[in-house]
Each structure stands twice: as C-alpha cells, then as structure tokens.
Simulated assay, not measured.
Amino acid sequence: MSQLSTEVVAKKQMTERKRMWKHIRKYKALYIMSIPGILYFFIFKYVPMAGSIIAFQDYNIFAGFTDSPWVGFQHFIAMFDNPDIFNIIKNTFVISFYDIIFNFPASIILALLLNELRVVLYKRVIQTIVYMPHFLSWVIISGLFMTILSPSNGIVNSFIEWMGFDHIYFFGSEQYTRPILISSGVWQSIGWGTIIYLAALSGINPELYEAAEVDGANRWQQTMKITLPSLLPTITILFLLQIGQFLDFGFERVYTFLNPLNGGTGHIIDTYIYEVGLQSAQYSLTTAMGLFKSLIGLFLLFIANFLSRKATGNSLY
C-alpha cells in the first residue's frame, strides 16, 4: 500500500514538473525580461543582508567580517542607552504616521478628480504638471521650499506681511519642520501615485457605470459603489507596501531640510545613522539600528497584512 502511494505521489510530482516547464516555455520571453529585475534585487537587496552580522560584531574595516570580534547584543543595548534615541524613534514614527495620513490618500483623491474630467487634453496637461516634481531630487526640492518660505523675500512671507502680520522663519522653528517635510513629500510624490491609480481606474468595466446610471445613481454614488470598491485591491497593496517601509522615511528627504535650529523634531533614524555611522565611523552601532528598523517594519507589515486579509480579503500573500 505504501509503495502504491509513493508511486502516485511520484507521478503527481512529475506531472506538476512537466506542467511547470511547459508554462516556462510558453512564457519564456516574459521570464527572460524579468531576469534584470531579479538580478537587481538579488545583488542590491539580498546580498547586502549578509552585512547584518556587523551588528553583532565590534567591526573593524581592516579585520573584515571574519576576524572582527563578536560582541552579541552589545550594540543594541548601547543604542537604547543613548538618551537621544527615544526622541529620534518618536520623530520617525510621528513623521511616518503623518506621511501615511496625508500623503497616501492624496494620490487617490487626485486620481478620482482627474478621472472625472472629460476634456482629455486638459486632463493630460494637469497629469503631466503634477507628475513633474517626481523627477526632481530632494536637494532641488528643499532649495525651492527654502526660497518660497524665505523670511526675507519668500512669496509666503511676502503674503503674510501684506496681510499685516510679522514674517515667519519657517526653517528656524521646530514646530514647522514636520509640516514642511510632509507637504514637500505630498507635492513630490502625488503625481506618481496618481498614475498608478489612473491605470487601475482604466481597467474598470464602463458597463458598470452605464448600468448604475440607468438605475439613477449620480456621480458620487457611482464613485462610492463602483470606483472605490474596484480600486480597493490596488489601494490595499500600495498601503501594505508603504507600511513595510514605515520607518524608512528617507534620508535625503529629511536631511536636506534640517539645520541646527529645527533638528529637534526632524531628526529620524536614517539621519542619525548617517551622522553616527559615516561621520563617526560607528558601523556596528548603526547597523544594529538599521536592523532594528527593518525588523519593526517587517513586524508592522505582518500585522497590517493579517488585518487586511481579515477585513478586505486582499493581502500581499
């Protein structure tokens, strides 16, 4: 009986193997096209993960991985012994939370508004304009915001003084650091997210809208009953991907806006890693911080994915 079961399992595995190779031969062009992407992630994402062992060593660049002494969790303990670390983690959580609250829905709202435009040329022009900031570096974006918010000749302060109020030194006060970081992020990325949602909107069957219109549904009802439910899988995937990068707010996005006057509410884990790791050459400590950040992001992704699968039926896996 056991021999018969083994033969059945072997035949089943052979059939599945033949089906897999048949599928690969059929779509071999797509598999070949995916090779550069696979190599990119393997070389630049998976191979560098081996460097995480530095977090458990007293790493010496001359001794290398093999000869550097092991110290266990000493660097993790030292990380939390730093009195500034809790303020830095708090800043990272708060800024990332605000980014999700304001930045993530902005692309959805703009895509819905553009989708309602009937003049195609006008729609394309607006879409191009809002997408252009995505190609600008954060150095240029920070320079633009510094010029616009300048206390001497910035357009915002000129308007404030025209209204009869005193000018505001936005980059010299900690209370404006987070709003500037979030608003600049919305301006830079809203066009990219809009393209993704417009692509998803183009895949909705127009017959659904025609049937709803026959039933007397107005545009708002069609949006709530057809558009948003159809966009829900795309929204869920992009939201889960952003949750996975919750603590990875971006070094350039923050560092270019910081100065000694506004760093109290702007310093995040990435900027701290740069200052301690590269400027002070404490590679093991900053690797421990990076590993801690990645583990927190992975944990949040698992939780969000589980809740999404229970609530909406959509998830990453």
Rank of each mutant, 00 (worst) to 15 (best):
S202P: 00
N262I: 08
P260Y: 13
L112M: 14
L201N: 07
V94M: 09
H23M: 13
D99L: 13
W192L: 11
V254M: 10
V71G: 04
E213V: 00
F251E: 13
N259S: 01
M146E: 07
M146K: 15
F80C: 09
N82P: 05
V94S: 04
L114N: 06
I168W: 07
L136S: 08
R118M: 07
I24D: 05
I95L: 14
V125I: 15
G185M: 09
S5D: 02
Y317A: 08
D99N: 14
L208M: 15
L301T: 06
I77V: 12
G64C: 12
I235A: 03
L241Y: 14
F302V: 09
Y31R: 07
D270E: 14
F159N: 06
R19A: 12
F56D: 11
A63H: 05
F306Q: 14
W162N: 14
F73I: 14
W70Y: 07
Q222L: 04
S173W: 05
D248I: 04
I95V: 04
F170M: 03
Q279N: 08
W70G: 00
A78P: 01
S308C: 11
L278C: 03
L121G: 02
V71T: 10
S68Y: 01
F97Q: 07
S150Q: 11
G185Q: 11
S52L: 15
F102S: 05
W162V: 10
Y209R: 07
I269C: 01
I226V: 08
Q175E: 12
H134E: 06
E213P: 00
F299K: 04
P206S: 10
L258N: 06
F65M: 13
I237G: 01
Y209G: 05
G37L: 14
N153C: 04
D67I: 01
H267V: 01
F171E: 09
T236K: 01
G313W: 09
I38F: 15
I109G: 03
Y317V: 09
E213K: 10
L136C: 06
S137G: 12
S280Y: 15
Y59F: 14
M289Y: 06
E7I: 11
K11A: 12
F76V: 03
Y283E: 03
A212Y: 02
S294T: 04
N60V: 10
L261G: 00
T177E: 10
P36K: 05
L247V: 02
I101S: 01
G203A: 06
Y131L: 14
A217F: 00
A29E: 07
M132P: 00
I53Q: 06
S107M: 09
A10L: 15
L240A: 10
Q57D: 05
I160T: 08
